[in-house]
């Protein structure tokens, strides 16, 4: 039987210095959803993504991408780390950063060639950054840097996209441009898991949501579970978010 879950996390526990930051997480992400992970600072949102991608080793539990371990399914997965996690003064250009997305499918030692360059240019075009392809990355604005990161994920041509706060520090135009691309990806049948901070935009942007605060509070369709009850459970205070229709 074919597994209908794009991502399945079972009993995942992650600890830093023996202090659990994620506790016994069970999570199943259906194929083709655009899912937000929400929760307060220190809730373990980034850690969850990083453990799924094998960047952090969990102390217990398992992760499956379409029913198989991550290291067997790398090519199906693209990753957009937090913008602040890299040094933007690194001596490289926008197109070069996008090309890094092709390194996974190239494997060790092999160099990117014309095919990879063409893919990178197309991805830059899609995010509206073609004009900046040879710009040094420190000379880009925050929003432009985020678009370059998105282009790098697009070039991976994956089935599942993990994104860590892709809207952080971007202007309104970029935010709209990014969410349109994400929605397009979902239309194309891709699965997207996005760490998100702005609760106001959750109902508008996403169709699936996971509430996380060290433990998983709830996961499901936004329409059904994005309510004050879950928000209060997640954020610990009596949270009244205006979910205006």
């Amino acid at each position: 039987m074919k597994n209908k879950f794009a991502v399945q996390v079972d009993d995942l526990t992650v600890a830093y210095n023996y202090k659990p930051v994620l506790w016994d997480i069970d999570l199943a992400v259906p194929e083709g959803v655009l899912m937000a992970i929400v929760g307060p600072n220190g809730a373990g949102k980034s850690t969850l993504i990083k453990s799924v991608l094998g960047i952090i080793k969990p102390i217990a539990g398992s992760v499956a991408i379409y029913g198989k371990p991550y290291n067997k399914q790398r090519k199906l997965v693209a990753y957009v780390p937090q913008k602040g996690s890299v040094d933007w003064d690194f001596p490289t250009t926008a197109i070069d950063v996008v090309m890094m997305g092709t390194y996974g499918s190239l494997g060790w030692i092999k160099r990117p060639g014309q095919k990879e360059k063409k893919a990178a240019l197309e991805a830059l075009e899609k995010v509206g950054m073609l004009a900046f392809k040879n710009r040094q990355i420190s000379q880009l604005s925050g929003g432009q840097q985020q678009r370059v990161f998105l282009a790098r994920a697009l070039v991976q041509n994956a089935s599942i996209y993990f994104m860590d706060e892709p809207f952080q520090g971007v202007d309104a135009t970029t935010e709209i441009a990014i969410i349109n691309i994400l929605k397009e990806l979902r239309k194309a049948g891709k699965t997207l898991v996005v760490v998100h901070h702005d609760l106001q935009t959750v109902p508008e942007y996403f169709d699936w949501v996971t509430f996380l605060n060290v433990k998983k509070i709830a996961t499901g369709p936004v329409k059904e579970i994005f309510n004050d009850d879950n928000l209060t459970k997640t954020y610990g205070i009596n949270y009244k978010v205006a979910i205006n229709k």
Binding site: K50, L53, I55, V77, Y79, S85, V86, F90, I109, P112
Partner: peptide, 22 residues
């Protein structure tokens, strides 16, 4: 010469590098 690409990506973005299997 052999590992230029790997050195570059792991220096610039260790997270992505790890996710890519480098």
């Amino acid at each position: 010469f052999l590992f230029f690409k790997e050195l570059k990506v792991s220096t610039f973005d260790a997270g992505l590098s790890s996710a890519l299997g480098i």
